Simulated scan of single mutants.
Amino acid sequence: MSDPVTDPEMDDIETGTLPLDAWHRARGARMVAFAGYHMPIQYDGIMAEHLWTRTSAGLFDVSHMGQLLLSGDGVVEALEKMLPADVASLGEGRMRYSLLLNETGGILDDLMLTRRADGFYMVVNGATKYDDIAHILDNLEDEITLNHMDEQALLAVQGPKAVEALARIVPGVDTLVFMTAGAFDWDGVPLWISRSGYTGEDGCEISLPAEAAEAFAERLCAEPEVKPIGLGARDSLRLEAGLPLYGHDLDPETSPVTADLGFALSKRRREEGGFLGAEPILAERAAGPLFKRVGLFVEGRQPVREGARVLEAIDGVEGRVTSGGFSPSLQRSIAMAYVPAVLANPGSKIDIEQRGKRFAAEVTAMPFVPHQYVRKGA
């Protein structure tokens, strides 16, 4: 799922205001432009915020994301025509990661889908949400209703102490396990909370009315474990967790097979097909991809960034680094890249060139830092 990057060219983009804009500024956040909004990139420094989240609990404002509710007769069938997920078997309060695809099998966006009593709740990326809405509407029958829940804010509290802190404010939230969700109440404010996130840590995402967001954020940050964390640290956390970033690691030219997201193609849907882009995706899956997304340990401490060349090529087509940085947790340079599939096994040696300088790298399994999700029976 997408986050802002520190790009000085974005400072001139016309931006809107999110519900917590003034709250972030009052706490000293450095704001940057992304997806049509000003977003907090950091408060006390990306490294410190990253490590705080890994050891305690960080509060992230992700209200730029698109929150959608799809309902009506035939909504399951409509979603299964668009998504490669097994929507029909998704129980109430259960979540599933899935993908919006084009006809050639390219990824238009990645998303989270949850079945609720009132329909299917979908969270899509902020930078693509309006294109996503248009794509979904183009593929829906008239009897299906799509509600863009733009009156809702979205917060995420992440880290090993996140659920403990949240449960003091919202009793019962600790009964959720990874990839489950439910309706809760905070002083009369309705909350929709999922035990999920984008950092690899345990934690929750909280959808709530925008007018209640500041009071809720203030109350949560009154807990000693919780600090507000900028989206710069969210990006470094998701990289360590091996989670792809749409618009960087994923795009309309990349298929789920090449992106190593085969788990998003459910077994029944692989066997039956019938979703947008199924034919080319299943053909590629059978034949094997030419390139594959992998994790890399990069020699030295200097990070390699998006756009660096992977010098190993197939028929003159080189691979590429799509995300990279210095890992605060591991104290070494890491990256995600597309490399020839024959070199995608852990231990394979890769050569990278960035601004005329060569770097040696080794393919490694992801995540770089183990996930800390709390699953059923844990």
Rank of each mutant, 00 (worst) to 15 (best):
Thr258Tyr: 05
Leu101Glu: 04
Arg168Asn: 12
Leu290Ile: 13
Ile41Ser: 01
Cys221Phe: 02
Glu306Cys: 06
Ser323Val: 05
Val226Ile: 09
Glu312Ile: 03
Leu290Phe: 11
Glu362Cys: 07
Gly288Cys: 13
Ala222Phe: 01
Asp12Gly: 15
Ser348Cys: 06
Ile334Tyr: 05
Ala29Phe: 06
Leu191Trp: 04
His38Thr: 03
Arg320Tyr: 02
Val321Asn: 00
Asp21Ile: 10
Arg320Asp: 00
Ala33Phe: 01
Lys292Gly: 10
Glu14Lys: 10
Glu284Trp: 09
Gly356Trp: 03
Thr53Leu: 13
Met65Lys: 10
Leu220Asp: 06
Asp131Leu: 09
Thr15Phe: 11
Gly172Leu: 13
Leu282Thr: 03
Asp21Pro: 01
Glu306Leu: 08
Gln42Gly: 05
Ser89Asn: 15
Gly325Ser: 03
Leu113Ser: 03
Phe263Pro: 06
Gly36Phe: 10
Asp12Thr: 15
Ala117Tyr: 07
Ala360Asn: 10
Ala183Pro: 01
Pro160Asp: 09
Asp73Glu: 15
His24Thr: 14
Pro228Ser: 14
Ala117Asn: 10
Phe368His: 13
Thr53Asn: 09
Gly200Ala: 08
Leu108Thr: 04
Asp3Phe: 14
Val157Ser: 08
Leu231Ile: 01
Thr364Val: 15
Asp150Pro: 00
Ser333Arg: 08
Lys81Gly: 06
Phe120Glu: 07
Gly126Ala: 12
Asp3Ala: 14
Leu113Arg: 02
Pro224Arg: 01
Gly126Gln: 10
